[in-house]
């Protein structure tokens, strides 16, 4: 965690880390992994590994991010000579490079048109379809991005990445029902992903917060999916955090006017959890969060994988809880 890694970039890259990554460019650009000798000899003096090209790709992206366009161009050229200009992945990387170096929205529009042309030649290039969505999003045309993405997903309904992106776009425009649907599609494709369960629970929770009246069914579903996420990952901070947050919302509702709600609720297809169950879940979440905060805080080895900000948030949640009880 001390030094950013180009082979497996961290899950979040704030600007200082991006700088650190792109400063790794000069030595890598200086030494060519491929040999310039003629064919049979080049096989002997080749130094490339699969990791080489992953590193090149990641370096290209971080160079673009830090505005080091010269290095990015050099890396892109090297990738192009190695894999050929018609390789779908190279076409996409070139597109990203052009997007990054575009000065204005107008230039971006021309890139967008170029993508259309590429798709006319090869409609099966899904990476370029995704780039189109990204460009539309970057131009602020969220509705158009949603339409483009739904077309993509109609043709490739098992693309979990696409569904996840669609869900996020729907959240952006506040279409909670659709966002939930898209996340459920992700779960159909990869039901074991604890992050997907936690995300679906978050969408349910946000939807319950956005409406004025308390949405018991949405809260219940959020509780269920957070519970599932910790069932799939026993040390998942986000899962426990969400569980505690929702239990705290649910307990007063369930204990105050439970009978009346239970009778005249129209969405009876979602059975409400029992009060004792929710209380037990809250207790479990509190204990686990306290353990994570304690072990991480004491610098114990084997507990340092958590994100610092997440641990701080968990500590704050626990502190708030403590003050109310006192």
């Amino acid at each position: 965690m001390t030094q950013a890694n180009l082979l497996t970039p961290p899950s979040s890259i704030p600007p200082p880390v991006a700088l650190q990554l792109s400063q790794r460019a000069p030595p890598i650009i200086a030494s060519s992994p491929t040999s310039s000798l003629p064919w049979p000899l080049s096989l002997l003096f080749n130094a490339e590994t699969p990791e080489t090209w992953t590193i090149h790709e990641n370096l290209l992206l971080s160079a673009l991010r830090t505005g080091d366009d010269k290095a990015a161009r050099a890396l892109l050229d090297r990738l192009t000579t190695r894999f050929g200009a018609s390789n779908p992945r190279i076409i996409t990387l070139r597109g990203i490079y052009e997007e990054g170096t575009a000065k204005s929205d107008k230039e971006l529009e021309t890139i967008f048109k170029k993508y259309e042309d590429i798709l006319k030649e090869d409609p099966s290039n899904f990476a370029i379809r995704k780039r189109r969505v990204a460009v539309l999003k970057s131009l602020g045309r969220i509705q158009d991005a949603i339409i483009a993405l739904t077309v993509l997903l109609e043709n490739s309904p098992t693309d979990a990445e696409g569904w996840a992106e669609l869900s996020e776009l729907y959240v952006k425009v506040g279409a909670w029902g659709q966002a939930v649907f898209a996340m459920e599609e992700v779960l159909l494709i990869i039901p074991n992903a604890w992050t997907a369960h936690a995300q679906l629970a978050t969408v349910h929770y946000l939807s319950s917060r956005s409406l004025s009246l308390p949405q018991l069914s949405a809260l219940t579903l959020a509780l269920k999916h957070f519970a599932r996420s910790i069932e799939l990952n026993e040390s998942y901070l986000r899962g426990y955090y969400g569980l505690k947050l929702i239990a705290k919302d649910l307990i007063p509702i369930l204990s105050s006017d439970a009978p009346s709600k239970r009778n005249n609720n129209e969405d009876d297809e979602v059975p409400l959890p029992r009060l004792e169950t929710v209380k037990k879940l809250e207790e479990l979440a509190t204990n686990k969060l306290a353990e994570i905060v304690r072990q991480h805080g004491s610098g114990k080895k084997g507990w340092q994988g958590y994100d610092e900000a997440e641990v701080i948030a968990a500590r704050e949640l626990l502190d708030r809880d403590g003050k109310i009880e006192r």
Partner: peptide, 27 residues
């Protein structure tokens, strides 16, 4: 499942890499 980009961070979902947004953030 980091490629789904569902867990904070913002570096998942590389297919939808928002290069301009990241450049702006850095600048």
């Amino acid at each position: 499942y980091a490629f789904l980009g569902l867990d904070g961070g913002g570096e998942g979902r590389r297919g939808f890499f928002d290069v301009r947004g990241k450049r702006r953030e850095y600048a």
